Computed example of a mutant assay.
Amino acid sequence: MGSLIYGGGDDAIHIEDRALAHLKVVIATKLRRNESFTLSWRHPEEDPAGRSTIWLHPSIPLRFTFEEPETPQLNMRWIEDLMHSANSSGGIQLIDEVLEAPAN
């Protein structure tokens, strides 16, 4: 389980490593363009039920921490889907990964 630490505080947002690796690509792209946006997610099962949203801005400190030392192979379709939501008025919605069906 990875963590997103936002705003220099001690409160970590826990996100599965694979999802966090994909989010990192999208968030870094948006912030590199000096764009602000929201990020929304459903709380993990071990947390109280609900969902949260944060406002991401290039001037606010952000840190990604991963449990796994190796970077996973990235799914470009998932990155594109996350980027599409990032560019919408609702901001990034952390959606589940869609896996491609094997070709027959």
Rank of each mutant, 00 (worst) to 15 (best):
I15E: 03
S3F: 12
Q73M: 09
R33K: 12
E67C: 03
I15G: 05
L31F: 06
E45W: 09
S59F: 06
G91P: 01
N75S: 12
P44Y: 14
H84P: 03
A49W: 08
Q73I: 11
L62E: 01
H22G: 10
W55S: 15
G91W: 05
I13V: 13
E46H: 11
S85T: 12
R33C: 12
N104Q: 07
W78S: 00
I60R: 01
Q93S: 13
K30L: 15
H57A: 10
A12D: 08
E68N: 13
P58L: 00
D11W: 13
G90L: 10
E46Y: 13
S52C: 02
I92K: 02
G9S: 09
R32G: 14
W55F: 14
F37Q: 07
K30M: 09
I54W: 02
R63I: 13
S52K: 04
Y6K: 00
N104K: 09
E68M: 15
S40Y: 08
E45V: 15
W78N: 02
N87V: 01
E68T: 10
G9A: 15
V25D: 10
G2R: 00
V25S: 12
T65K: 13
R18E: 10
T53K: 06
M83T: 15
N87C: 13
N104V: 15
L31D: 06
N104H: 11
S88A: 03
T65G: 03
L31A: 04
K30V: 03
M1E: 05
K24P: 01
R51I: 06
D47M: 14
M76W: 15
A49S: 12
D96R: 15
E70G: 00
L99T: 15
F37P: 04
A28F: 03
T53C: 07
R18I: 13
W78E: 04
E97C: 14
W41I: 01
H22A: 00
D47C: 14
G9H: 11
E46W: 08
P69F: 09
E16P: 07
M83I: 04
T65P: 02
M83A: 15
P61F: 06
L94P: 01
E35G: 04
S40C: 10
L31C: 07
K30F: 03
S3L: 11
I13E: 11
L31N: 06
I92H: 05
K30H: 02
E67R: 04
G2H: 01
A101G: 00
N104G: 11
M1I: 14
G8A: 11
F37M: 12
N75L: 11
T71A: 10
M1H: 11
G8E: 09
N104D: 14
R32Y: 07
E80P: 02
L62M: 14
I27E: 01
N104I: 05
T29C: 03
Y6Q: 03
L82G: 08
A21R: 10
E45N: 13
I79D: 11
W78Q: 10
T71R: 11
T29P: 05
R33T: 05
I92E: 05
H22D: 13
E70N: 08
